[in-house]
Design a protein around this nucleic acid. Structure first.
Lengths: 227, 227
DNA sequence: ACCTGAACACCGTTCAAGT
DNA sequence: ACCTGAACACCGTTCAAGT
């Protein structure tokens, strides 16, 4: 990863532009999370001084936003499939889910710095278009879009933190072993096992989408699985 | 906030115990968020050296967990009201919502360090008890509980970041002004206005709860508002 | 225009020492 | 048992200067 120096001493060109810096930053983030991105580490990776980063993109906050923006562009323009509008709406939400898993560190960072909307904008656009194709307009599109994405965010927040990252004594399943609660032993045992978050997400998503998006002739009336 | 020194020089007693330190830490967090809590600032607040904090509670990570744990205990033991089990289930979720708003900085911190479950454990217990009162057992309790809380988390994540904290150019409503999208002007206009997150939460919550919890004789069949 | 050197004001953490 | 002094290895950011 070391760049060959273009020269020695002060004022020598390193041949970088803003995009190189942002790309390297995104790389560090995807590998080690936001904590792994320090101005000094990034500068070392690029073979320059921290000031070079300030020159090309600005301070750390701007750098983080730029990295999320770059990832957003990389993820845009994936086509959406599905036989009915409702199915395509579901497909967009599932794509949000999949993208978040594939880029979990960047997703977590985006949330931390309040740039979730920036990262998810292409999917918001796709979702709005499919909701219109399903017959919604105006505020109905907005409310359906927000409800779907907020639900997705909630399940994601939990799913992304699955076991590796979280200390054992902070996990709900572990906490339930000792907490005093007036529940059936069978219930307590169930609460000590991790839930199938993906399945719960799919079921909840189907009911939320069904409550906002009218069914096409070939959609099943009761939210179930597609054949 | 300055403590009168119990003496001068090294080795003098400051009269602190672990609880004093954790309480002061929680105070700093609730005022300025996790970023406002540095070991040095907290030590200064208490009139001691940083090492005193290490002695009483340990490093920064342990301190943050201890602060969340303390808040969790403070928030426990609030009784739940409602005429039917389903109404009481809804009431617990609304309490989670209200608590998060009242303690937004601590809630954000709990999420950052993966201690959301620790903070919410008393509410998880209350929710499990009410779900059993509604007739659920075992895995049905767990799945309903997780679905309800993950939904709540998703809407909260968005609602808590409402306008003050987030830079204008990162807000979805602002981004929608310029993004290319093949949607009706009316739809685009709606997407440029902030949604009523609380109302969307209430509606979505009702449908999620209804899908897991059987209705009591006096519950309305179709999710609407209680009289 | 692009980059370096050096410094400032912060961090969390540790070690030895004091009473 | 409880606390301090001093140091280490980090941070982000800024200023003047070099080519």
């Amino acid at each position: 990863m070391e760049r060959p120096a273009a020269g020695e001493g002060t004022g020598r060109r390193a041949g970088l532009d803003r995009d190189d810096v942002v790309a390297a930053a995104l790389d560090l983030i995807e590998q080690g999370g936001a904590a792994a991105l320090s101005m000094r580490k990034l500068a070392a990776e690029l073979g320059v001084t921290t000031n070079t980063i300030y020159w090309h993109v600005g301070g750390r906050d701007e750098l983080l936003v730029a990295a999320i923006e770059r990832l957003s562009r990389d993820l845009a323009a994936q086509p959406v499939r599905g036989r009915s509008p409702r199915e395509r709406v579901l497909a967009v939400a599932r794509r949000a889910w999949d993208n978040a898993f594939e880029h979990r560190r960047a997703t977590a960072l985006a949330h931390e710095i309040g740039a979730t909307s920036l990262l998810g904008l292409p999917l918001e656009v796709a979702l709005a278009e499919e909701l219109e194709a399903a017959g919604l307009r105006g505020e109905a599109v907005r409310d359906a879009l927000r409800a779907i994405l907020m639900c997705t965010a909630g399940f994601l927040v939990v799913a992304l933190r699955r076991h590796e990252e979280i200390a054992p004594h902070l996990r709900s399943e572990v906490l339930w072993a000792d907490v005093p609660a007036d529940v059936d032993p069978e219930t307590r045992a169930a609460l000590q096992a991790p839930p199938d978050v993906a399945a719960l997400f799919e079921a909840t998503l189907r009911s939320v989408v069904a409550s906002h998006v009218p069914a096409a002739p070939d959609d099943p009336d009761i939210p179930g699985g597609p054949p």
